[in-house]
Amino acid sequence: MRLRKASALAAGVLALSLAATACGGGGDDDTISVGIKYDQPGLGLKTPDGDFVGFDVDVATYIAGELGYEPDQIDFVESPSGDRETMLDRGDVDFIVASYSITDERKEQVDFAGPYFVAHQDLLIRDGETVPNEEGIADLTLCSVGGSTSAANLAEQYPGAGLEELGTYSECLTGLENGTVDALTTDDSILAGYAAQEQNQGKFALAGLSLSDEYYGVGVPKGETERRDDINAAITKMVEDGDWQAAVDEHFGPANYEVEPAPEITETS
């Protein structure tokens, strides 16, 4: 009688274990969840018909392919700047490719692969207007996204400048267009994408400043070193086979934005 009870208990434990395995790990083993931006033209944009386009999307798709996933097995998840660390920690996504600048502060919470791209913080202003020099920034009302390195850099370097922190760069762009802010500040890659959009051509221009160096990395949950190494290998292959440059030409060429060569991978430990 005791043996039968023990066998039944073991069977129950095994069933629960199998169920937990099937439900755990952030979802179906046949798909992979990747965090991207939904509102950054040129980098990560969700189109009205539900497609995803941009340089980061191409990088993410290439990486997922090297990890064994077809494009239709990728679940793209919107990853706002202020939520990225939390999303990785909770297991909402497997990795994030979303203009995610590598910083020491962020590396305390997540690990990075890469970098795969280098950008520089600049200002987007109304076409025909100018910013005389960096000192003139302190006299401007600027807009950026809360939780972004751009907002943090500005607050540190120009504490006297007026800064509005909104949820998306698209909201900042609306403020720039209607005159409630003087400039949108973030990475020049993002600004170039907005300026190149058909509906924005002739309205905005980059100020041509270089306020910081931003090395974009692929965020992975803390401690997932094997996943990081696999992604580093995928980035290296993407650069070597020419797909990286092809993606650069496709998404940044129309904006006449001069992209630096692919940076050396540094996030290896």
Rank of each mutant, 00 (worst) to 15 (best):
A15S: 11
G35H: 06
A113P: 08
L211G: 02
V218A: 09
V248P: 03
D28G: 06
D72V: 06
V97K: 11
H120T: 02
G160N: 15
T103P: 14
D104V: 06
E156S: 14
K5Y: 08
C23K: 03
D127E: 14
L3E: 13
H120I: 00
D230C: 00
T149W: 14
D28P: 07
Q73M: 07
Y69F: 12
E264R: 12
T141W: 11
A247Y: 11
T236D: 11
W244V: 02
C172Q: 06
N133D: 15
R228N: 04
P41T: 03
Q109Y: 14
G202E: 09
T141F: 08
G219H: 09
K203I: 07
E258N: 02
D92H: 07
G50Y: 13
D39K: 04
T180S: 15
T266Y: 08
V181S: 00
L191A: 04
M238C: 11
D39M: 01
L211R: 03
L124F: 00
G65A: 11
L142V: 00
D49I: 05
P261V: 05
D213W: 02
D111E: 12
E66M: 10
K237H: 07
L140W: 06
N153P: 01
G219R: 13
L14S: 06
E164K: 14
D139L: 04
A15L: 15
N232T: 05
V97P: 09
A10S: 10
K37M: 12
E85N: 15
G179F: 01
